[in-house]
Design a protein around this nucleic acid. Structure first.
Length: 466
RNA sequence: GGCGGCGUAGCCAAGCGGUAAGGCAGAGGUCUGCAAAACCUCCACACAUCGGUUCGAUUCCGAUCGCCGCCUCCA
């Protein structure tokens, strides 16, 4: 049961062992809170949630940090046009972000540091880099000198020396020694918020907050750092440079990156305008669990093409799981005998599922094992070869699935008395072969969202799914 | 132009040296008063194309074509 993860640093799958046995320190790049996150963003957050859950299932204690970047060009610009202070503006989207996390059933990380709450740590890091000669000052701003860091480009495999010619001119350009040097601290510009500090007034450059907060909360070397593939360059490359130049130690041991959500063959992104938020989908009546299922069912390193057809396929697959769970619980009451044949099979399926998850979080493979078991369970139930030990084993598998995927198959099992009595009246009508009356009641219940199924084992009911 | 990734049935998607998991949709059957669900059967003889390595390749190597991403803010 060794965990294996694809490490972007080496571009290969490696056995994973945390630096401190039993304890995984995980930094997951979070949102810049200038707007609602879209479902492409949530693909990554959902995958990180799965990673966290699987590490826990495998017995590790997890300390996860997710940053909230609440100061950058966009938050400043949007706050200004909304006529709000930066803090009031970003708080809105921080609140919205947590609502969305809850809606999707994403577990809370241990820490959600905000960049603006870590200005002193960021300043200290700049000072440290200054002392070591990795940073220079120019007109009140501070820049990281990439030529001072020999490993620059190792993560992204970009050659630091080349590409300078194509880089776009921005307003800071002539202040830098080399166009690829990047700002670690930005001098205040007309009316922008700034902090008064020992290195002068200003605000952190992008990248800095992640270095400062991750090292402060997780230590100078920690286990896993994740994000979307678009973060590899420049964000993560720059984080490595800043952090390692300051400490002289390896910053992160395993880098993991999620592929993008694609829409009509293109990356979903704010700038392209081809994005959907969770709120958009909720407004259209889509089930959050189905969204979660869909986004997790494709391996995280493969692009996932979002379509509404894909979403309804996910919904259908999920309904199959819910139906199964409902059937199991309704059957649980009347079990006779110990059984055990299916329990053995269930154990095999569970091992297969976990082995796939251990192998770089192969969710699609894991689901394959699960659905094979689904068929085997129905089959056993149909033939009455299902005893108490089988029930126990099956519940264990479903429980493992629920804890890693964050989706608990099943349905509400409560019924109000009125509906219960309607079901009873229909059974009586059927018994006297009054099928018109029986069908009338069935249609009526369907209108109330209750689906009835007559099986050899008796009447079964379930709630209609979307 | 540089770097990286992808191309498996109608759709989604695992596998990655020994002859193709799973889901959705579809067809036939069993069960059923009907319906639904479930179960059974069927649904890819070359897994983009062309070469090469090998006893043997979807799986390794090379080339070609197509698509995507990064190189600029971005999960």
């Amino acid at each position: 049961m060794t965990l294996r993860f694809h490490n972007t640093l080496t571009r290969r799958e490696e056995a994973f062992e945390p630096l401190r046995p039993g304890e995984v320190r995980l930094y997951t790049c979070g949102p810049t809170v200038y707007d609602h996150a879209h479902i492409g963003n949530f693909r990554t957050y959902l995958w990180e949630d799965l990673l966290r859950r699987h590490l826990k299932l495998r017995g590790h204690r997890v300390t996860q940090v997710m940053n909230l970047t609440d100061v950058d060009d966009k938050t400043i610009a949007n706050a200004r046009s909304a006529g709000l202070t930066l803090e009031d503006y970003t708080r809105r989207y921080i609140d919205a972000f947590f609502e969305d996390l809850d809606a999707l059933g994403i577990e809370r990380a241990e820490h959600y540091p905000r960049a603006t709450a870590f200005i002193p740590e960021i300043v200290r890091l700049v000072q440290r880099l200054l002392q070591k000669g990795h940073v220079y000052e120019s007109r009140g701003s501070f820049y990281f000198k990439i030529s001072s860091f020999p490993h620059y480009g190792r993560l992204s495999r970009l050659d630091a020396a080349s590409g300078a010619g194509q880089s776009r001119i921005d307003s800071d350009e002539y202040d830098k020694d080399n166009p690829r040097d990047f700002a670690v601290w930005k001098a205040p510009r007309d009316g922008e918020p700034f902090w008064q500090t020992e290195i002068g007034p200003g605000r952190p450059g992008w990248h800095m907050e992640c270095s400062a907060m991750s090292m402060h909360l997780l230590g100078e070397t920690f286990d896993i750092h994740t994000g979307g593939v678009d973060n590899i360059f420049p964000h993560h490359e720059n984080e490595i440079a800043q952090s390692e130049a300051a400490t002289g130690k390896p910053f992160v041991r395993y880098w993991m990156h999620a592929a993008h959500l694609i829409v009509d063959g293109e990356k979903m992104s704010k700038s392209k305008g081809n994005y959907l938020t969770l709120r958009d989908l909720a407004a259209r009546g889509y089930d959050m669990r189905a969204i979660r299922f869909m986004l997790l069912s494709v391996h995280y390193r493969k692009p996932l093409n979002f379509t509404f057809e894909g979403l309804s396929q996910a919904q259908a697959a999920l309904t199959r799981l819910d139906d199964l769970a409902g059937r199991i619980e309704q059957a649980a009451a009347g079990l006779q005998g110990e059984g055990g044949a299916l329990a053995a099979t269930a154990g095999e399926r569970l091992r297969g599922m976990l082995a796939d998850l251990d192998s770089d979080l192969n969710t699609a493979g894991a689901l394959g094992h699960l659905f094979e078991l689904v068929r085997e369970i129905h089959s056993a139930l149909d033939s009455g070869q299902f005893g108490r030990r089988d029930l126990e084993a099956v519940r264990e598998v479903l429980g493992a699935f629920a804890s890693v995927f964050g989706i608990r198959p099943g349905q509400r099992v409560d019924l109000d008395a009125e509906i219960e009595s309607a079901i009873r009246r229909r059974s009586e009508a059927r018994a006297r072969r009054d099928f018109d009356e029986a069908d009338r009641i069935r249609d009526d219940l369907l209108g109330h969202g209750i689906v009835l199924e007559d099986t050899p084992q008796g009447v079964r009911w379930k709630r209609k799914s979307a």
